[in-house]
Nucleic acid binder design. Structure first.
Length: 513
RNA sequence: GGUCCGUUCGUCUAGGGGUUAGGACGUAUCCCUUUCACGGAUGAAACACGGGUUCGAUUCCCGUACGGACUACCA
């Protein structure tokens, strides 16, 4: 029996959760649940300068919206808390000191100006990649070059300093990525990463290793952008003495721009008019507002189904998967290697599928909510009727009202393109007759008699019904296309039907034929 | 520039030494529908290129091209 799977999603609260981040969270969750393991949320807020108010809550709510609730998080403490790195601050220095004592890390006192100067010097000397490494560190101000006394003195006087990892000069570092297989990097291409910043906070590199170890993380599933620094992480596990419990890594392919190339950005989303954040977000600094998938009308199930298929597939032709079905079908082996271009059309298609699958009762709730905000009240059961004929042509719940508005509000104008071609003298004759027949109808209007009366009206005028149907639709709905007419008659009822025909007859000008 | 990762229809992808290279979105045509949509049918549409290995490569290997990520006291 192998140990229980524990994975984490570790976002920074620097703004709204990007759709790529949501996918990473989803894959972590699916993997954990498939294995019967735990999914935790850890807030990586070690960069105090980038903290954005509200971002944490946003992350929490976004995950709740898509239905993935962490087993452990800042809001649901487990045995390995706290789950916010800023609250774990006292922990990290011990590990950094351990590395310094073992000779795997060192103090560095260089100012940012000195670092810039070093990079400029190297660039001028045509060094291919200027970095703080086994060669350049010999010329910088650190505990490797400074006399021991001076180092102690500087430390004692509280001089700002960082702790850097002492990357070995010549070593091959390998890691076995679950998605990409063996990846090998030479240590001479790595630089001496800062582990502890001068403000006393750890960098991502140190914090994520310490926390993952302490939290018993077994698998690290994260974006491909971390692959280049993964060898640093392997080194840290080794130097900290944790190599035998090092988690397995899986680096996910990136989400790319829909057109052209490059990483998907908010800019692309804005340009193409689709959301990139799960929910509405207003940047507290720029006041910039972005509509989220939720608020654009995407159903959470459709959203995660769509997201899951951006880089993963079940290996067969099925496409519609509920969250439990995704868990059941998920496997890391079936995650693709290459970047995925973002296609909003597919997202819309998924939404339509889920929308159509919903019961009339559920959909009526959406319609009723829209009606309520418009201040419109309708009789019991009417919303269900409307939704039944409208849902086949809706992408979002809001379309139910947007497209079905004419069912509750009589048209005050008519589609010019249709009236100019179809509002013929014949149409007027048939509608006039039909109106009279409706007025003298004693029985309740039903599909059969509504249809029969219309046919009679046409026959009595010796006109083919098909020729005037577009005009009938125009009179009743104001448009040239829409749901089945008889169904519409049933929803608006006899009195309203008569009123609308009457209004059209009095409003529209007959065209010459 | 350097390091690493990648490359099958427009897009998401299946497949994998011998296939008519499969599905989905989108698209085109047709059917259904006195309209539109839904649904159904059909079509167009892909293995980046060059070398190897092999009887045979889209599939394996090596290059090239192209794309991407990374290259901070950011994550």
């Amino acid at each position: 029996m192998t140990k229980e799977v524990r994975v984490r999603f570790a976002p920074s609260p620097t703004g709204a959760l990007h759709i790529g981040g949501v996918r990473t969270a989803l894959y972590n969750y699916l993997f954990a649940k498939k294995q019967g393991g735990q999914f935790l949320l850890r807030i990586e807020d070690t960069d105090q300068t980038r903290f954005v108010p509200g971002a944490e809550e946003y992350i929490k709510e976004a995950l709740e919206w898509i239905g993935i609730v962490p087993d452990e998080s800042p809001w649901k403490e487990g045995p390995h808390g706290p789950y916010r790195q800023s609250e774990r601050k006292p922990l990290y220095m011990d590990y950094a000191m351990d590395l310094v004592e073992k000779g795997f890390a060192y103090y560095a006192f260089d100012t940012s100006e000195e670092l810039d100067a070093m990079r400029e010097r190297l660039t001028a000397a045509r060094v291919v990649s200027p970095q703080y490494n086994s060669i350049t560190r010999t010329q910088m101000k650190n505990s490797l070059t400074l006399p021991e006394d001076e180092v102690k003195e500087r430390l004692a006087s509280g001089e700002p300093h960082v702790i850097r990892l002492k990357v070995p000069r010549k070593e091959e570092i390998r890691l076995n990525d679950m998605i990409r297989g063996w990846v090998m990097v030479h240590s001479n291409t790595l630089d001496d990463k800062v582990l502890m910043k001068s403000d006393g906070m750890p960098t991502y590199h140190l914090a994520n290793i310490v926390d993952d170890h302490l939290m018993g993380i077994t698998h690290v599933i994260r974006g491909e952008e971390w692959l280049p620094s993964a060898p640093i992480h392997v080194l840290l596990y080794r130097y900290l003495g944790w190599e035998d419990t090092m988690p397995e890594f899986a680096h996910l392919p990136l989400l790319l721009k829909p057109d052209g190339n490059g990483k998907l950005s908010k800019r692309d989303a804005d340009k193409n008019g689709f959301p990139i954040f799960p929910m509405n977000w207003k940047d507290p600094r720029t006041e910039d507002f972005s509509q989220g998938f939720k608020d654009a009308g995407y159903l959470p199930d459709a959203f995660i189904n769509f997201l899951a298929f951006l880089g993963w597939n079940p290996g067969d032709n099925r496409e519609i998967f509920s969250l439990p079905e995704l868990i059941q079908a998920f496997s890391v082996e079936r995650i693709g290697k290459s970047g995925t271009k973002f296609d909003i059309n597919k997202a819309k298609w998924f939404n339509e599928q889920y929308l159509k699958a919903k019961s009339n009762e559920e959909l009526a709730a959406y319609l009723n909510a829209d009606l309520k905000s418009e201040g419109i009240t309708i009789e019991e059961g009417k919303a269900e009727q409307i939704v039944a004929i409208m849902k086949e042509r809706a992408t979002f719940p809001s379309d139910l009202w947007k497209e079905g508005r004419f069912l509750l509000i009589a048209p005050d104008q008519f589609d010019e393109k249709v009236s100019s071609k179809k509002w013929t003298a014949d149409a007027v004759k048939v509608l006039t007759t039909y109106k009279a027949k409706l007025e003298s109808l004693d029985a309740i209007l039903e599909p059969v008699n509504a249809k029969a009366l219309l046919e009679e009206a046409a026959a009595e005028n010796e006109i083919k019904l098909g020729k005037v149907m577009p005009a009938v639709r125009l009179a009743v709905t104001g448009a040239g296309a829409g749901p089945d007419l008889i169904s519409i008659f049933m929803i608006i009822g006899k009195d309203e039907l008569i009123k609308r025909i009457d209004f059209a007859l009095n409003t529209l000008e007959v065209i010459e034929s």
